[in-house]
Amino acid sequence: MKTKKRKASKGLWVWLLVPVALAGGAAAIYFTADTSPSGENEWVTYARAQIMGDPQSQYIKAIVADTGKDRNEAEAIKWYEKAAAQSHVPAMMGLADIYDRKGDAASFRLAAHWYGEAARGGDGRAQYQLAQYHAKSLGGLKPDPVKTAQLLQQSTDAGYGPALNRYAEELKGQGQLAEALPWFQKAAARGDMNALYSLGEIYADPLSGDLASPIRAVTYFEEAANMGHVLSQLKYAYLCLGGQGVPRDPAEAYKWAEIASHTPDKTQKQAALEVRDYLRTKITPDEQRRGEVRAKAWLKTRG
């Protein structure tokens, strides 16, 4: 059967008849040619969200209202709530984040509720946020070190890698080095390069008091350096040059500065080049040559 084609002008409605399977039978909707964030036609998304009650489509509607040019918070909350009522975890997080941003006591309670629901749904960031709420006594939650530790561990297990290190950084920022140390160590044990670097910083700093230990600092900087952490490579280079916590080895210092200079990060690359140029004024040509040979061998093993 031949159908009559109708050419639509740009910006006009393209009228297409679409059968939609509904609980009460088949119905028809008309939709425009515009595309929704889901990649499908915007009215198909609307039909699935409004008529069929599809939580993913409701979530997409919420995202548009929450982050679009004409942001509509009330509309976003409405659609997030519809999807969250059907156990849609990202929608729960959307609700929690809205209330968290508001910053008042009543909103913090709502945020705590939805972070809690999403945390029970296995969301790593929700578990991290809930741990923060316990630690800061937000949303009616009380400080609970045991619960906080459990949530942070769950968050890391769920794949939210920064959880342990971020919490440790907050404690460090508050001057609670002794409390931060075990969290850095937990993160470092999981191969978190930033945690390894932070441990090196703590042990290398004379102001860390009884925690100061150049030998331990070298251990952490070296481990992170070999994993490709540029700042650790530069720190380790300085320690090798000065013989702090490790036998003095100018060639090894140059090696790590040379390796660091190969980073694609422009800011870090500039810092590495400056360190390398500084080292050239402090070491002999032979030490520089041996450092270059070592760097080349290391880079070759890393592809």
Rank of each mutant, 00 (worst) to 15 (best):
T156E: 10
G122F: 15
N72L: 04
E42P: 04
M93N: 01
V44K: 05
Q127L: 00
R120A: 14
P145Q: 02
K78N: 09
Y46N: 10
A49Y: 05
L141A: 06
K142I: 12
Y46G: 04
H134F: 10
E42K: 14
E42L: 10
P143M: 04
D100F: 13
D70H: 11
K102H: 08
A149W: 14
K61T: 03
G53I: 00
Y80W: 11
Y133S: 03
R101E: 12
S107P: 01
M52R: 02
P90W: 08
Q153G: 08
A106H: 04
Q154S: 12
N72V: 05
A106N: 10
E73V: 07
A158F: 14
A65W: 10
M93F: 15
A131K: 06
N41W: 12
Q58R: 09
I51D: 13
V146Q: 14
R101C: 05
A76R: 09
A105S: 13
D70S: 13
Y99E: 03
R125N: 11
Q154N: 11
D123N: 15
D66T: 08
D123F: 02
Q50F: 05
A112Q: 09
L141M: 05
T156R: 07
A62L: 06
R71E: 13
Y46R: 14
P143S: 06
Q86R: 03
A119H: 11
K142T: 15
A118S: 10
P90E: 01
Q154F: 14
D66C: 05
A131P: 13
A158W: 15
G121Q: 07
V89A: 02
I60M: 07
A105G: 05
T148L: 12
V64S: 04
R48K: 15
S57Y: 00
W114R: 04
A126V: 07
A96T: 00
S107M: 07
R48H: 12
T148W: 04
Q50Y: 13
H113K: 15
H88C: 01
D123W: 06
Q56T: 13
Q127H: 08
G140Y: 09
A65P: 08
D104M: 06
R120K: 15
D100H: 11
W114F: 15
Q153H: 08
A158T: 13
G139H: 10
T156S: 15
G139K: 07
L141D: 00
R101P: 04
H113V: 02
G122I: 06
K142M: 11
G140M: 02
Y115E: 09
R101I: 03
G124E: 05
Q56V: 11
